[in-house]
C-alpha cells in the first residue's frame, strides 16, 4: 500500500521528464552548438554566439516587455468582456444565443489571417495600426473565445441560488459579485487568463500585420530566424520565449495561491492536516 504512491510519483516524474524536459534538450544543444553535424549525437564544440546575439540585443528585452505588456492588457480586457457576456448568455434567456456564441467562437475556427486582412484596412483608416492599442484589439479576437469559454463553464456551474442567497443576506450587486461570484469564477478565469496570455504571446501574423513592424514582440524577432534557417538563434529565442511563457504562468498561479491564502489565512494548515 505504501509503495504505491511512490511508484506513481516516480511514473509522473518520468513522464514529466519525457514530455516536458526532453523536447527542450535539442533546443538547448542547438542554441549552444558549434559545428553540430550528422551523425554526431552531440555537437563537436560549443559556442555562445546565438545567446550572445539574443541576450545582448537591446531589442530582445524591449520585445519581452512589450510582449508581456500586450498579453497582460489583452487578458485584462478579455476578463472584462467575458464576465458580462458569459453572465448574460448563461443566466438570461437570450434570443438567438447560438448566434452570439457563434460570433464569439468564430475566431477559433476562422483562420486569423483572413480576419486580420479584413480589419487591417479599417485599422489603417482609424490610425490603429502600428500602435499597441491596435495590436491589443487585434489579439482579442483569437484569445477571447478561450477566456469566454472558461468563464462560461464557471458560470454554468454557479447556481443562481448562490446569488439569491447573498441577496437575501442583504448583499447588493457589487458585494454579491466580489463575495460570491468572483471566488467561484476565479479558477475558470485563471484558466482562461493562462490561455489568453499564452495565445497573445504566440501571435506572430496578427501582431506583424497590425503592428506593422512598429510593435515588436518576441515572435516578430523570432520568426525571421526560423524561416531564415539559423537554428542556433531560433533555438535561443524559442527557449527565451518558453521561459517567459512559463514565468507568466507560474506568476499567475502564484497570484491565485496568494489570493486564496489571504482569504483562508490561518486555517489552511488545519485543513491540510485533514485527509
Amino acid at each position: 500500500m505504501k509503495k504505491h504512491p511512490q511508484l506513481l510519483s516516480l511514473f509522473a516524474f518520468i513522464a514529466l521528464i519525457i514530455f516536458v524536459v526532453v523536447p527542450f534538450v535539442p533546443l538547448i544543444l542547438s542554441s549552444v552548438s558549434f559545428s553540430w553535424r550528422w551523425p554526431d549525437v552531440l555537437p563537436e564544440s560549443w559556442s555562445f554566439r546565438a545567446w550572445e546575439y539574443v541576450l545582448n540585443d537591446g531589442r530582445t528585452w524591449q520585445a519581452v516587455g512589450i510582449s508581456l505588456w500586450i498579453a497582460l492588457i489583452v487578458t485584462a480586457v478579455n476578463i472584462l468582456l467575458a464576465l458580462p457576456a458569459a453572465n448574460a448568455l448563461v443566466r438570461y434567456p437570450v434570443r438567438g444565443r447560438w448566434l452570439f456564441e457563434a460570433i464569439i467562437f468564430a475566431p477559433i475556427i476562422i483562420p486569423p489571417f483572413i480576419s486580420v486582412m479584413g480589419i487591417h484596412l479599417t485599422f489603417l483608416r482609424l490610425g490603429l495600426t502600428e500602435t499597441v492599442l491596435g495590436v491589443v484589439l487585434a489579439h482579442i479576437a483569437p484569445t477571447l473565445p478561450y477566456m469566454f469559454r472558461a468563464v462560461m463553464i464557471s458560470y454554468q456551474t454557479l447556481s443562481a441560488d448562490w446569488e439569491d442567497q447573498a441577496r437575501m443576506l442583504g448583499a447588493r450587486a457589487l458585494p454579491r459579485f466580489f463575495h460570491v461570484v468572483l471566488p467561484h469564477l476565479l479558477p475558470g478565469i485563471l484558466a482562461g487568463a493562462s490561455l489568453s496570455v499564452l495565445i497573445s504571446l504566440s501571435q506572430y501574423l496578427i501582431t506583424f500585420i497590425i503592428g506593422a513592424g512598429q510593435v515588436v514582440t518576441l515572435p516578430i524577432l523570432l520568426f525571421p530566424f526560423v524561416s531564415g534557417g539559423d537554428p542556433g538563434i531560433a533555438s535561443a529565442y524559442s527557449l527565451l520565449y518558453a521561459a517567459i511563457a512559463i514565468a507568466a504562468l507560474v506568476g499567475m498561479d502564484a497570484a491565485l495561491k496568494r489570493y486564496y491564502q489571504l482569504n483562508k489565512a490561518p486555517q489552511d494548515l488545519a485543513k491540510g492536516g485533514k485527509p
Partner: peptide, 17 residues
C-alpha cells in the same frame, strides 16, 4: 472598464509618431 480603456489610450499615444 473605463480605467482600462484609458490606460490603453495612453499607451497608444506614446507610440504615435
Amino acid at each position: 472598464t473605463a480605467i482600462g480603456m484609458l490606460a490603453l489610450a495612453l499607451s497608444a499615444c506614446s507610440s504615435e509618431e
